[in-house]
């Protein structure tokens, strides 16, 4: 069982799948040199330039060509380099990929994986640090994955590649270097299943992506103070594990959702609203970025983002 970084874990997962199925190929900028983060290192040598296609800086066509190639029976992995550039391919993703199966009455299933490394990336500022996963959770027709550990990131890739639906994978940029064990044979992960990180009755904590390890840290600090929280990493936002969250909130009566993204209309709002509908009387709170673009200077970035200390403080207030 290799102990590897999250980037390497996803590399192993894609490698395993590409060796299994010759219809799988990768297209995106700089993928032939291994991708921006080494997540395709060595692939060109093994699979050649027809399956590892370094493309022009043409995001619309990277996305749209992936779709077209899926429509003739290949299984493309569309690499967006970093999330923020998907804004240049929104027509192809939102109007085309997400719509084609439905709009054409089920004649085609666009089996594409769209990889979009996202989230706050230390001192990269407003155009390279966004976390807009909530937009896509709002969109019918796509699966939205936000893994936070090497094992989950690897399993997510395997599921995404094998899925006949379009799967959006939000690789957590800031966690590329996080390490963990990955099984020799990487099995798929079931979409819509949260991972239970900590067990407790004081409060339900829900998080995902780069915020999940912060929530874990906060949960451990609270445990040291005698407060045991129930912590769930959603892992996928569409579909999301409403049942697991509801079961937990039914026990604790308190729900704290922490995410990197802006609080206003972030996916935390959906989690809280659903629980309010199902379990009236739930005390709920959301923690996330204020409605401000991500700034550059370290003290400015730090002033705005979620930290374990802020999660602890919010939890303590809810329990007071």
């Amino acid at each position: 069982m290799p102990h590897v970084t999250l980037a390497e874990a996803t590399r192993l997962a894609v490698l395993q799948e590409m060796r299994r199925d010759p219809r799988i190929w990768v297209l995106g900028e700089d993928v032939a040199r291994g991708g921006l983060f080494g997540q395709y290192r060595g692939f060109l040598e093994e699979f050649g330039p027809r399956r590892i296609v370094s493309t022009p800086i043409s995001e619309s066509t990277i996305m749209g060509a992936g779709l077209g190639a899926a429509l003739v029976g290949t299984r493309p992995i569309i690499e967006m380099r970093i999330f923020d550039f998907v804004m240049c391919a929104m027509d192809e993703l939102v109007n085309q990929i997400a719509k084609i199966r439905y709009m054409f009455g089920g004649q085609a299933r666009p089996a594409v994986v769209v990889r979009m490394p996202h989230g706050i990336w230390r001192n990269s500022a407003a155009q390279h640090s966004q976390m807009l996963e909530g937009w896509f959770a709002h969109l019918p027709g796509v699966i939205v994955c936000c893994p936070s550990t090497p094992a989950d990131a690897a399993a997510t890739m395997v599921s995404a590649i094998r899925s006949d639906d379009p799967v959006l994978v939000f690789d957590p940029k800031n966690l590329w270097g996080a390490t963990g064990d990955v099984p020799d044979e990487i099995a798929p992960l079931e979409f819509g299943r949260a991972r239970h990180l900590r067990h407790g009755d004081a409060l339900t904590m829900v998080s995902w992506s780069a915020c999940a390890p912060l929530a874990e840290e906060a949960a451990d600090a609270l445990a040291a103070q005698g407060i045991r929280v129930d912590l769930l990493d959603l892992r996928t936002l569409a579909p999301w594990d409403e049942e697991a969250v509801a079961a937990s909130v039914a026990r604790t009566g308190r729900l704290l959702v922490a995410h990197e993204a802006v609080v206003t209309a972030g996916f935390g709002a959906e989690v809280v609203a659903r629980m309010a509908e199902r379990l009236p009387g739930t005390r709920a709170r959301r923690l996330g970025f204020p409605k401000v673009p991500v700034p550059f200077a370290p003290p400015l970035e730090d002033a705005l983002k979620v930290t374990p200390a802020r999660i602890i403080a919010a939890a303590r207030e809810m329990l007071a």
């Binding site: 027809r50 996305m63 749209g64 077209g68 190639a69 429509l71 290949t74 493309p76």
Partner: peptide, 19 residues
């Protein structure tokens, strides 16, 4: 969407080439 078919067409051709 005006021009929406263009990227799809080139991708379909690339897929056919791969196959």
């Amino acid at each position: 969407v005006v021009s929406g078919g263009i990227p799809i067409a080139v991708g379909a051709a690339q897929g056919l080439q791969l196959l």
